[in-house]
């Protein structure tokens, strides 16, 4: 890796990967919500099976991993450089920051990363590496697909998992709230008329994603 890429080059990659991850979050949320609309879990399991076996999706999965890796690596490098740039802190901390959540991107980011590792172990590794998921039985017939839905439902019946999940997704919302408009600014897309719209849309996006994901464990937990 060439660590001497300019600051702006790093930020441009950071924002492109971030925007890509933001699209992924929408797709993932759409699939998760299927669990709420179909108590038999058939829809969800079919889509999960498709996502787990379709060759194009399998390729895309590596693109996604690369996206995460680049975003995380650059985020950490940029942050370390930023800490080095001010060796001696102020006694009275600067209080003029305009984008509050921008101060906590590395912190929210690292918590999301820890969550991702757990998430990965719970689902991806369990299915792909250990094949440790039961088959999906629909109306007494074995469909030959894994019952991914049941895996989710079982986890969301544990109160500690539900609480942890809600906290992480709120923090993801904070990350996204700053990130959305920031990505456009990094790409040089700033406009007197459209930038306020982008900022507004970013707030809505962050809230919809965060609350959208949070809705699922709440419904599962309280209707079990």
């Amino acid at each position: 890796m060439n660590l001497s890429y300019s600051s702006i080059t790093k930020k441009i990659w950071m924002s492109l990967m971030g925007l890509f991850l933001m699209i992924f979050l929408v797709v993932h949320l759409g699939i998760n919500l299927l669990l709420l609309f179909d108590p038999t879990r058939e829809l969800f399991n079919e889509v999960a099976h498709f996502m787990g076996t379709n060759p194009i999706i399998q390729i895309f999965q590596w693109v996604l991993f690369a996206g995460f890796a680049i975003h995380i690596a650059l985020g950490v490098i940029l942050q370390i450089q930023n800490w080095i740039a001010r060796p001696k802190r102020y006694k009275v901390k600067a209080i003029s920051e305009d984008s509050f959540f921008s101060k906590f991107m590395i912190h929210t980011g690292i918590i999301i990363l820890i969550f991702l590792v757990i998430h990965f172990a719970n689902f991806f590794i369990k299915v792909k590496v250990f094949h440790g998921v039961d088959d999906f039985i629909l109306a007494g017939v074995n469909t030959g697909m894994e019952d991914m839905g049941l895996l989710v439902v079982k986890l969301f019946e544990l109160p500690e998992y539900v609480i942890g999940y809600i906290i992480v997704l709120l923090l993801l919302g904070f990350h996204l709230d700053h990130a959305f408009q920031s990505a456009f600014q990094s790409l040089g897309l700033n406009h007197p008329k459209y930038t306020p719209c982008i900022k507004g849309f970013g707030h809505v996006y962050a809230i919809v994603i965060s609350l959208g994901y949070i809705l699922i464990p709440l419904v599962i937990y309280f209707t079990k």
Binding site: I84, S99, S102, N190
Partner: peptide
Amino acid sequence: GFGNCTNTYACEAECPKDISVANIARMN
């Protein structure tokens, strides 16, 4: 050794000449 921009916009808030962060986007 200056730091990298995180689009926090404290610069614009404190600039005595009200230089806009739209300039940063233009530079990007």
